[in-house]
């Protein structure tokens, strides 16, 4: 039983190493949707608000929400963009913590 588990742990370490290797990009999207009641299928009709793509080589790309102001000019929808930015911050923080935890697992297993 212990040998089987040791093999499983080694497989986990290998998988984690592959995940870390593949994690070269992070994408955060924010959408909104109008649904009736709690119909989960309604989420498939969600419309995008903003998107941020962050690459580990330092490149990043953001699609920002715009709206027309009273003068008819396009301006950034600050409220929606701040909402999206909050999600981006949460994602960046989470990713940093998870990567640290995974890398510490690898070093602990040798």
């Amino acid at each position: 039983m212990a040998n089987e588990f040791e093999t499983a742990l080694k497989n986990v370490a290998t998988s984690i190493a592959q995940y870390v290797k593949d994690a070269s990009m992070m994408q955060v999207e924010t959408h909104y949707v109008e649904i009736v009641g709690n119909d989960p299928a309604g989420f498939e009709k969600a419309r995008p608000v903003a998107r941020t793509i962050i690459k580990l080589d330092g490149d990043s790309e953001t699609v920002v929400p715009m709206r027309k102001n009273e003068a008819g000019n396009s301006v950034v929808d600050t409220e929606l963009f701040e909402l999206h930015q909050q999600n981006v911050s949460t994602a960046i923080d989470y990713r940093a913590r998870i990567l640290n935890a995974l890398l510490s697992t690898l070093s602990a297993r040798g």
Partner: peptide, 16 residues
């Protein structure tokens, strides 16, 4: 509802 990938990718849908 937010879908979270293993490494932090996120897709969030808010009710209108």
């Amino acid at each position: 509802r937010t879908a979270v990938g293993w490494a932090g990718d996120m897709q969030t849908v808010y009710l209108h």
